[in-house]
Structures are given as C-alpha cells and as structure tokens.
Amino acid sequence: MDLLERLITIFAENGYVAVFLALLLCGAGIPIPEDITLVAGGVIAGLGYANVHTMAAVTMVGVLVGDAGMFLLGHHYGVHMLQWKPIALLMPPRRYAKMQEKFQRYGNRLMFFARFLPGMRTAVYITAGATHRVTFVRFLMLDGLAALISVPFWVYLGYFGANRREWLSMWIRRGQSSLWVLGGVIVLSMLALWWYRRGRKSHS
C-alpha cells in the first residue's frame, strides 16, 4: 500500500491534472498500476480534495486517451516501434508475435478483456493498431465499454474506502476477480439481449 499512499499525497497536492497525467503514463506502459492510480484518485475525492463524479470523468478520459495513444502509435509506426528501446523492453519481437497469434484467435474479445489484464494492456493496444485489422472507432468502442466497467469500480472503491484503509486494502486485493465477474455478467447480458432481439426479428 506504500505506492497508494504516495499517489494519494501527490494527487491531493496537485489535483485532477496529476491523476490525468499519471493515467497517461500508465497507458504508455510505465510500471505504475492503473488500478492503484484510479483508487488513489477516488481516495482524494473521499477525503474532500476533489469531486468524485468529476474524478470519475477525468479518469475515464485519461484512461481512454492513454490507450488511444498506444493504438495510434502502433497503427502509424507498426513493427518499426519494436526498434524503439522503451517499446523493445516492453514488447520484444517474440512477445509481439504471440500477441499477433492471440489476435488471430480471439479478435475483438482480446481488446475488451485486456482492460482486466494488468501488464498486457499496452502490448495489446499497440498490437491492435499495428495489425491494421481493427479500426480506431471499433477499438475505442471496445476499450470504452471495458473502461466503463473498470474505471468507475476503482474510483468509487477508493472514494468509499478513503477513511477505511484496511477495508480498502482488502477490496483492492479482491477487486480484479470482482471485475472479471462484473465484466462477464455484462457481456452475457448483452449477448442474451442480442439473441432475444434476433429471435424477435426472425419471427416478425
């Protein structure tokens, strides 16, 4: 929790801008956990340094801008990015090849579920852009849908746990599995709705 406390201090002193910039760094692959960053943003709102709803909006934009930046870099520079030292450390050629294989196998689902896979997001988003198999609009829709699940979850968790750090620590540990369940429920609900509408159209 030391990192969380340090981020809380920085964000409390510098407000929304610091949270936004930290999320851009997360999107760029800097080893700052995105979930801890979002929780810290929620905590400072719970402590009265920010409005929690504004914080949720700011963090949503920060997450999407960071992700979109990696996608667009991959789309524009492609495999040439693998020669850049920071990218080469993050995603060596062998890992890039594995990501391409996963895209062939899982397609759009990989972009959605990458949001819930810490350590894989940046590599997935760069590869999504570099493959040129996904339009930017489709990427933004899938990533945005996943972010609508994860971002408010972490921000409001921090908000409600701002003065209950032991409770907050427990739920941070449980949070990733909780998000998987929530994401699965939403996906299944959307599929059920799609099948229902399809069935109604076929009988009309």
Rank of each mutant, 00 (worst) to 15 (best):
V39N: 06
M141V: 14
L25F: 14
V124M: 05
N108H: 11
A130W: 08
S150I: 03
Y125M: 02
G175P: 07
G15N: 14
I186P: 04
G107R: 08
Y49S: 06
G107H: 13
L179K: 10
G74T: 04
I8H: 00
R164T: 03
I149H: 09
I87P: 01
K201S: 14
R198D: 13
P31G: 02
S177V: 15
G119Q: 03
N14H: 15
M1Y: 05
V61L: 14
G46M: 05
E34D: 13
G42C: 11
F139L: 03
A162V: 12
F136R: 02
A68Y: 09
M1E: 12
F20N: 01
M55H: 09
I10Y: 09
T131F: 11
K102W: 13
L191N: 08
R105Y: 13
R121A: 08
M120T: 13
M120C: 06
G175F: 10
L4K: 04
E101H: 13
S178M: 15
G27I: 00
A22G: 11
W194V: 02
V185N: 11
W194N: 02
H203G: 07
G69W: 03
R200A: 13
L25D: 04
H80W: 07
W154K: 10
S189Q: 03
M190K: 07
A97V: 04
W180L: 15
R105V: 06
I44Q: 08
V155M: 09
R121P: 02
D143V: 05
Y125P: 00
P152Y: 07
L157I: 08
L188W: 02
R121Y: 08
M170Y: 15
A50E: 11
T131H: 05
A123R: 12
E5Q: 08
P31Q: 09
Y49D: 11
G183Y: 12
M170Q: 15
D35N: 08
A28K: 03
R6V: 05
F136G: 00
V61T: 08
A57L: 10
I36F: 14
L188Q: 01
P33S: 03
L188G: 03
Y159H: 04
P92G: 06
L168P: 07
A57R: 06
T37I: 05
A128D: 00
F139P: 06
M190R: 00
R115E: 02
